[in-house]
Design a binder for these strands. Structure first.
Length: 900
RNA sequence: GGACAUUUAGCUCAGUAGGUUUAGAGCACUACUUUGACAUGGUAGAGGGCAUCGGUUCAAAUCCGAUAGUGUCCA
């Protein structure tokens, strides 16, 4: 090799080129073959704006899994995608048009959609670039957009099929209405906020009586829609109202009084007004007690003609005015403050209104059964498992899915109306088919194509996403094609826990419903990213840093490193920029380790005194240590503990490989190492690069390229993962002891302000393996290791330390001799004190009859050993202390004599 | 209001089956260290007794109950 390696690793110069190389090599592409597939689809980001750190997290996790699987021999197929996101995108475009003084309605459907397409095109490019600079190894030939022709067709086909099978119906429901975007939204798209509202106590006059009954309500403006008042049958206070009627103030309408156990005796007056059109509970009551349903709102949440003189006024304005009117008429008894959770639209942030509306619904009850079972019997695994509970709960009380949205951008509902009757429609793929259907349905009609009107509404965005595992492989239109047979079901699904209901559960349902097979084997829930104010990072709050800035500053590898190291599955994580800094520091270390290895001088033709021969034990150790690490690494990653898996590699690389192995192996200046040794170093460095590759693909690939530039196989990402091998735990632990001796020696030097370069002699009570002498010399400047068969009589010439219960003595030259200071002595005394406490605790157990009779033998033996070891330690330290005290006068007066 | 989750060093998190020499990491911190891979570095160190209270047990961070804080979901 021997290349000129730049001193600094410049990600800006390297990352883009590496990515281009991968693309050119077609390494991301997948085609069905005889390998086992590893299929994964990217949760398609919305085309509404730029990607944020949450996407970086999600996509990095997927890329780590994909690269790891690829190197493990799987045929990895990672399908990238983009979501059309009806509500969000339409809202953005409408907002933009308003700024330009244009409105959606004035433009008309066709023109409006052309503006949307422009928006989509612009953001698509930004988003795709963001995914690429992160290093994602997804199969770009398979890029999907949820409004693509094939996917669009798939959605329509599923709608038609499910309608024909009776799963889809049209119904009159109280829906969540977003008055700003003038559309219904699903329960999941509502955010609840705590607000302080007023609770108004209003008097309703009892019919044919001079008395009043007081009703408490937060929504006085809805009295136009009142069709009853209600109290609890167990509430004696209202017993006299049985079978009576009351008069609604202002509109002077007579309504019945009903009894129902849903009335809360302790809330308000215990009696509430029933407005079935605008409250879900009241709607339920209206069905039970056969009450009228009176809608009082227009689509923009102004009051309609039912509101008399308040017609066309805004709901909140009417509330204010009607309170004034009630007050002046003497109907308002009092007003109280009340804390309430109010629903707001996630997208437009306007207060949700509840109105009755004709919508399309999907029956969920039957569909959900198999999906419930699949998770229960572990056919589908959740990581972390805690999300199962939430899933089960939701699935158990699942409600029908309102799949229509009053929007233009999206998959248009394939319903064609030919009359004004509620059933005057047919479901068909296009208008021509619809015509045929109509002719079948309505005999002898003279309906023409011009009389047919397609439903103006579109489908809920999730009605397209729930099909993705099938539709991206064209499994809806061509259910038996080779790709779907090979790639379905997916292996992993990586997604935020916030879309468990929106997406995950519905994909599971579509899988069983349409293919009678689960859509994926495992679901990995990522955490939700929060900023330093504990706020969920989202586009609507605009609090998410654009991660391209981070990549520009730190490099993609560093960002990936930081993000993976900090994430815990399913747990929220706080974004801090310094995460990337740790990544950058690590990248720098990897680069410099490579520079060191590259700079090693090696030759096969060695002259005397020119060769540096590193001790065999360090080579043996790193080999065993590597396979030990590989083993625990594999265990962690199979449990999807990505943060821990990376931490294992991080520590192994820094502590074992760099701080010990490379430090020992690097020769003194002007010395050569043999090619054999050099090849060994390269071999293991390459193995480490492989392990690091999924996390930091760019720098690992770059270094790999340089190392292998002479040979043909110069692409790391398609190389194979190191195979597990046996390791000798004895080698590892005996080496660990040596590292501890080194560490303690350094500590003594540090504590006594002795230069780390100072030579010293180590006295051990055990015959040390000569193999280790060299390492002790190189890393701790221990120039000699001497075996002591008997403890020295006078400790004071030595520095003393304990390793577990083994005793060691260090001797420094006269120049470096320092006597123990008070602090040292106090430390030892403290140590003894703590050990005594510990001993007391152990003995407490060992003297306890119950303990002796209950405890398993294993534990008992351990406890006994603990006792013996602790006593040993205490004795050693006490002896040492005594010895020092004895010789104090001696120490003061003269230089220490040499030990022997 | 209900349900669930969570509470371990300054921060972010581990802690497997109650018992592994008196609770582990990483970051931040402190001291020393500008040594030819790296100061984006090196060496060493200090920091908590596991939210609180009570219970079960020979033994509790770990199991049970209550309380409080936080978060999520639902109404």
């Amino acid at each position: 090799m021997d290349f000129e390696i730049p001193k600094k690793y410049d990600h800006k110069l390297i990352e883009r080129k590496i990515y281009e190389k991968w693309i050119k090599g077609n390494y991301f592409s997948s085609y069905p073959d005889n390998r086992t597939p590893y299929t994964i689809i990217m949760p398609p980001p919305n085309v509404t704006g730029k990607l944020h750190i949450g996407h970086a997290l999600n996509n990095t996790i997927q890329d780590v899994l994909a690269r790891h699987a690829r190197m493990n021999g799987y045929n990895v197929c990672w399908v990238p995608g983009l979501d059309h996101a009806s509500i969000a995108t339409e809202a953005k475009v409408v907002e933009k048009l308003i700024k330009k003084g244009k409105s959606k309605n004035s433009l008309g459907r066709k023109k409006f959609l052309s503006y949307v397409l422009k928006w989509v095109k612009y953001h698509k490019e930004i988003i795709l670039n963001q995914i690429k600079i992160l290093g994602c190894s997804c199969d770009w030939n398979r890029l999907k957009f949820t409004m693509d022709k094939k996917l669009y067709k798939s959605v329509i086909k599923v709608f038609i099929d499910l309608y024909k099978k009776g799963y889809i119906y049209r119904g009159y429901r109280i829906v969540n209405w977003d008055p700003k975007s003038r559309t219904t939204i699903s329960d999941e798209e509502i955010v609840y906020k705590n607000k302080t509202r007023c609770l108004y106590y209003i008097k309703y006059k009892i019919e044919n009586d001079n008395k009043y009954v007081v009703v408490a309500t937060t929504r006085p403006e809805t009295i136009f829609g009142d069709t009853a008042i209600c109290f609890n049958p167990n509430d004696n206070r209202f017993y006299h109202l049985n079978d009576k009627r009351v008069i609604v103030p202002i509109i002077n309408k007579s309504i019945p009084i009903i009894k129902d156990s849903c009335a809360d005796i302790n809330f308000g007056t215990g009696c509430f007004k029933v407005t079935p059109a605008h409250d879900i509970r009241d709607k339920y009551l209206s069905e039970k007690h056969k009450l009228d349903v009176i809608n009082i709102f227009n689509k923009n949440a102004t009051i309609n003609e039912k509101g008399l003189h308040y017609k066309n006024m805004d709901r909140f304005f009417v509330r204010k005015k009607i309170v004034e009117e009630l007050k002046s008429l003497g109907f308002l008894l009092k007003v109280e403050k009340l804390k309430q959770k109010i629903g707001f639209s996630e997208r437009t942030l306007s207060e949700i209104e509840y109105i009755p509306s004709i919508q399309w619904f999907l029956k969920m009850n039957k569909i959900s059964k198999k999906s419930f079972e699949a998770v229960k019997n572990k056919e589908i695994l959740f990581y972390p498992e805690k999300y199962k509970k939430i899933y089960f709960k939701w699935m158990k009380k699942i409600r029908d899915w309102n799949i229509s949205r009053q929007l233009w951008w999206g998959h248009r509902i394939p319903a064609f109306f030919y009359g004004n009757g509620i059933n005057d429609f047919v479901i068909a793929e296009n208008i021509d088919d619809a015509m045929k259907e109509i002719k079948n349905k309505v005999k002898n009609s003279n309906i023409t194509i011009d009389d047919i009107k397609q439903d103006p509404d579109v489908l809920d965005t999730w009605f397209s996403s729930w099909l993705l595992p099938i539709s991206v492989f064209d499994g809806i239109i061509n259910p038996y094609n080779n790709e779907i047979k090979y790639y379905y079901p997916l292996e992993d699904m990586v997604t935020g826990s916030d879309i468990l209901f929106f997406w995950i559960s519905r994909m599971i349902m579509s899988g069983f419903l349409l293919r009678n097979k689960k859509p994926f084997n495992k679901v990995f829930f990522t955490g939700i990213v929060r900023d330093s104010n504990n706020k969920k990072i989202s586009k609507s709050l605009n609090n998410s840093p654009d991660y391209t800035y981070l990549i520009d500053k730190y490099g993609a590898d560093s960002v990936r490193f930081g993000v993976i190291l900090k994430t815990t599955p399913g747990k929220d994580f706080f974004f801090e920029e310094k995460m990337c800094l740790q990544g950058r520091n690590f990248i720098n270390k990897v680069w410099n380790a490579f520079r060191l290895i590259n700079s090693l001088k090696k030759t096969d033709f060695l002259k005397k005194n020119e060769e540096y021969i590193p001790p065999h034990c360090v080579i043996n150790w790193i080999k065993n240590r590597f396979y030990y690490i590989l083993n625990i690494f594999n265990k962690q990653i199979s449990k999807y503990k990505l943060n821990e898996s990376l931490m294992i590699l991080y520590k192994f690389f820094l502590n074992d490989f760099c701080s010990i192995f490379l430090e020992v192996i690097k020769p003194y200046k002007e010395k050569y190492i043999s090619k054999k040794v050099y090849n060994f170093i390269i071999k293991y460095f390459k193995k480490i690069l492989k392990l690091l590759h999924p996390y930091i693909p760019f720098i690992s690939e770059k270094i790999w390229n340089i190392i292998n530039s002479v040979k043909n196989y110069n692409v790391l990402m398609i190389s194979s993962w190191p195979k597990n091998k046996n390791y000798d735990i004895k080698i590892i632990s005996s080496f660990k002891r040596i590292i501890k001796i080194i560490s303690l020696t350094r500590k003594i030097k540090n504590e006594n302000s002795i230069s780390k370069d100072a030579n010293c002699v180590l006295f051990s009570m055990k015959k040390e393996n000569k193999e280790y002498f060299y390492i002790l010399k190189k890393l701790a400047n221990i120039s000699k290791v001497i075996y002591l068969s008997k403890e020295p009589k006078n400790y004071s010439y030595f520095h003393f330390f304990l390793l577990d219960s083994e005793k060691f003595f260090l001797f420094f030259s006269k120049k470096n001799y320092t006597k123990l200071n008070k602090k040292n002595i106090n430390n030892i005394k403290n140590n003894i004190k703590n050990l005594n406490k510990f001993l007391y605790k152990i003995r407490d157990n060992l003297l306890n009859k119950n303990f002796l009779s209950c405890v398993p033998k294993k534990i008992l033996l351990k406890e006994r050993k603990k006792e013996i070891d602790t006593i040993k330690k205490i004795n050693s330290l006490e002896e040492y202390l005594k010895s020092i005290k004895k010789s104090e006068s001696y120490q003061d007066s003269s230089d220490p004599p040499p030990p022997k």
